[in-house]
Every structure is written in structure tokens, then in C-alpha cells.
Design a protein around this nucleic acid. Structure first.
Lengths: 116, 116
DNA sequence: ATCATGTATTACGCAATGCATAATACCGGG
DNA sequence: CCCGGTATTATGCATTGCGTAATACATGAT
């Protein structure tokens, strides 16, 4: 029931999460998925993360390089571009505004200035 | 540029905001829009809120009654149903999990338990 | 050899939602 | 009579999360 709502809530947020993971340095899709699966209540699947990586690269926020692996097919490493870092900074700036707005709604909603 | 991302971020969240507004008692679309416009960085338009109200009612989370107005067309007042209150409670329970997950990502991401 | 398993990526397609745009209805004032 | 503020409805687009499935490579079991 509520899963449908959660699915909607994640829109945009997962993009943010991916950039946060890459903030520390380059990584590849499969590893990013594992990292996000480790976070409780944030379980993601490959079919969610890979499209995000592709889009972020297409928009110039990520660059990639292919590295052969000894335990499977070649890995595609992604890393933040300068534009990507700017984007992440913007997200880091906007997110608190949202949580603040939510908190304003939760903690009373005075129609007019409460007097005294 | 970043507006597109914000649009995605709002998915699901605005539904939550509407229920939060109605938590205090019944209200009608236009008034809800005004209430949300009052919150900084949460500006919404009528074309966003009205479909949400329709959906929430169709799903049984809201009930409505029409009241004639002396300053325009009749108002459609919405109020939470028991199911709506349960839903809101579920959302109130889930939201902190999301913010917690985000904070875990932001504040370090230890691959293994940090020793010491 | 064959099959399953873990690693790693790609493609297809559906269901939802936010939102721009526009139309409509009602009232009062210039 | 037209304009602005109140109040709702309809249409249609773009984007995203995600289920499902296919594919490639290596190792180990049957």
C-alpha cells in the first residue's frame, strides 16, 4: 500500500544518493548498488541505479572509464565532474530547505501570527 | 537546471504535505494551496494540488463536502478519513527513516565497522 | 562438459506524479 | 462591460523508479 508512495518519494532522491556515494571518489555501478543496499530502508536494485548513472553522465555530472575486471565483465567506473560537484553542492543546499519546510508544516500551522 | 531535480524530489512529498495541512481540520483546495504557498521554498500551484486531492479522495484517505461560497463558486471541503489518519501516521513514521538514511550517506560511509 | 553462482552491465516497458496551460463559474468594483 | 480575485476541472507532457530479462565473464561443483 504505502510502497507506492515510497516509490514516489524516492524520485530525485536516489540521484542525490548516488552523487553522495561518489563524493568520496570513483566507483562503479555494482559497487554503488551494494553501498546503497547497506543502508537500511534505502534498498535499491540495479535497474534503478544504472539508469541514474547513465543520465548523470549524459548530463555531464559524471565521467566514466572502463576497467577490465578479473572477476567478471569490465567495470565502468564513474566519477564526479566539476559540474557534478557543483550539482551536488546545490543539492546539499536545497535538501535542508525541504526538511525545514516539512518541519514547519508538522509543528503547527498558525493561520496568522500567534499573538503573545 | 536544478528545477527539474526539485520537481522530481517533490513527488510523493506534496501528497504528504497536503495530509499534514488537513491534520488540523477540514479545508478546501484553494485554501490549501495558499497555505502551502506561504511556506518558503514549497511554492505549489493549483494544478499540482487539485489532482492530489482528487487522488487522495479516490483512495479513501479524504472525504469531501461542497459548501456554497459568497465570494465565488462553491468550495469543496476535504477532511481526513480514518484511513487517511492511518496513512498520515505511516508517512510520519517513514519520513524520519529517509532523512536518517540521507544523513548516514552524508556523514561518512564506512565500508566496515570502524574499529576503536 | 554442463550447470549454478556471483560479478557487472544493458534494454524494454509500465505506472505515477508534478506541472504548464487553458477553460469555466461566481462575485464585486471601476 | 471588462478586469481581478476566488475556486475548480480537464488535457497532455516529461521524468523517474523499478520489475523483468538478456548478456558477458570467471570460478567451482556435478
Amino acid at each position: 500500500m504505502i510502497e507506492g508512495w515510497i516509490t514516489q518519494l524516492r524520485k530525485g532522491l536516489l540521484e542525490y544518493c548516488v552523487l553522495l556515494v561518489l563524493r568520496r571518489g570513483e566507483s562503479y555501478g555494482y559497487e554503488i548498488v551494494q553501498a546503497l543496499k547497506r543502508i537500511e530502508d534505502l534498498a535499491v536494485s540495479e535497474s534503478t541505479v544504472y539508469p541514474i548513472l547513465g543520465r548523470l553522465r549524459a548530463e555531464g555530472f559524471l565521467k566514466s572509464r572502463d576497467v577490465p575486471s578479473d572477476a567478471g565483465p569490465p567495470r565502468r567506473y564513474f566519477a564526479l565532474t566539476p559540474r557534478g560537484k557543483v550539482r551536488l553542492a546545490e543539492m546539499n543546499a536545497y535538501w535542508p530547505m525541504l526538511t525545514k519546510a516539512l518541519n514547519e508544516l508538522k509543528s503547527g500551522k498558525p493561520e496568522r501570527e500567534p499573538q503573545t
